[in-house]
Design a protein around this nucleic acid. Structure first.
Lengths: 224, 224
DNA sequence: GCGACAGTTCGATGGCGGTCGAAACATCGC
DNA sequence: GCGATGTTTCGACCGCCATCGAACTGTCGC
């Protein structure tokens, strides 16, 4: 009966289907407006608004007002991590709806996780960067090697290791059971993958689909 | 509106205060009976029973019947990991009830996590075992070094690397932000700590409190 | 200024689910 | 067998909360 942190409060926020759908949508990393989230969750605008204010109260979301638009996003990578953990259990526990459809398969290969790349490709990339000693992996933390800054600069990715946000972070993958690269660097790499049009984001999904040529380029640059 | 795994279903199971208390209690690692869990959650027996069957349906618990006793335990380390992740967010988000009381402080130093030791002491122990190359850490996995079996045998811990359960696993700590040792070996070490009376489990809490002498012994053996 | 659009607040409704007491069921000790 | 103890099932009650329509607030374009 003694209780530490109010875990039920947090979990029940995620426990409503409408809110869960919203959070799931926000796992894509881009902040969304109330109307978009209402559509995503399949509820009316007033209902969505009520849910959003609850999620705000609970500290799970951040809000950025821009004119008459209000963009909601996940409050922190930690929240994203929690949701991934819940997804992991739901996957493991409810293989009832086992339709490993094309979208599901695509998700395993590559998907967006908050603001960086996840999935088999992302796991392989981190492994390779560590092998090549561009990044140094120690326990669950990842650090830049001395050569990292010039290495990424050559790819057109500027690393600002003075920024408040950690440059590298390990993020556990739920499909593969290993880490991929999160943090500012992970985000920058995802940006590059999209900007170079190596891959495009699947509409209404976290899946990231590489074009044949894009895949080859990505592998040449990050997996060679 | 498209949905992958049923995340709301899982989260709502954790989202009820009574069930959250039960799960929290089971994070201690020992399986408990329905009556104990009812007491823990502060509800009547029928209510507890109903909650327990829901948690079973949801795949979060396992059940071991022994005569007229029925012992409930967490279904998997993955479930334990999810709960730790939720606790982490609840801690981060709700610093309203900031009473870093003695119990909380003790929890940070050492506590039980499912069936193994967590907290600062546990993190330090894993670091040291890796430094001494008894264990090998690679990404998020931990492996035995060739010398590990004899090393632990000398401490009275037999390692069965043929068993189905992984011997070593990394488990992320929510207080410290790094890994500690889980898996069969982690469990065996916790057993030893308790059996040697180096520490005792705080009543009704996950905290593990070392005696002065026990702490010295533990540090001599694992942190030297 | 005014109309259009984005979003929130209010009020009323409905249903799901948590709650308990009583009774049924199961297993133990003897 | 019998009573005692642990546990689940049943039935009824109650409250909370998700839901929506309508009205209100705020911001933009012009």
């Amino acid at each position: 009966m003694r209780e530490g942190p109010d875990i039920a409060r947090i979990a029940s926020l995620v426990g409503d289907p409408a809110r869960a759908n919203m959070l799931n949508a926000l796992m894509g990393g881009t902040a969304l407006t109330a109307s978009e989230l209402a559509l995503e969750a399949g509820v009316s605008l007033p209902t969505a608004s009520s849910h959003l204010s609850k999620l705000m109260d609970g500290g799970l979301l951040t809000l950025a007002s821009q004119g008459r638009h209000r963009y909601y996003g996940l409050a922190s990578p930690q929240v994203a991590g929690m949701i991934e953990a819940i997804i992991g259990v739901a996957e493991a526990v409810g293989p009832k709806r086992v339709r490993p459809g094309p979208r599901d398969a695509a998700m395993r290969v590559a998907r967006v996780c908050y603001d960086h790349l996840a999935g088999e490709q992302a796991v392989a990339m981190l492994d390779r960067l560590v092998d090549r000693k561009v990044l140094l992996r120690e326990e669950n933390e990842i650090r830049l090697s001395p050569s990292a800054i010039s290495h990424f600069a050559a790819l057109g990715i500027a690393i600002d290791d003075k920024a408040r946000r950690p440059v590298c972070r390990a993020c556990l993958d739920w499909s593969v059971r290993r880490s991929h690269l999160a943090g500012a660097l992970g985000a920058a790499i995802l940006d590059k993958v999209i900007a170079e049009k190596w891959a495009r984001r699947e509409k209404d999904s976290r899946a990231v689909v590489f074009s044949p040529k894009g895949k080859a380029e990505f592998e040449r640059v990050f997996l060679a």
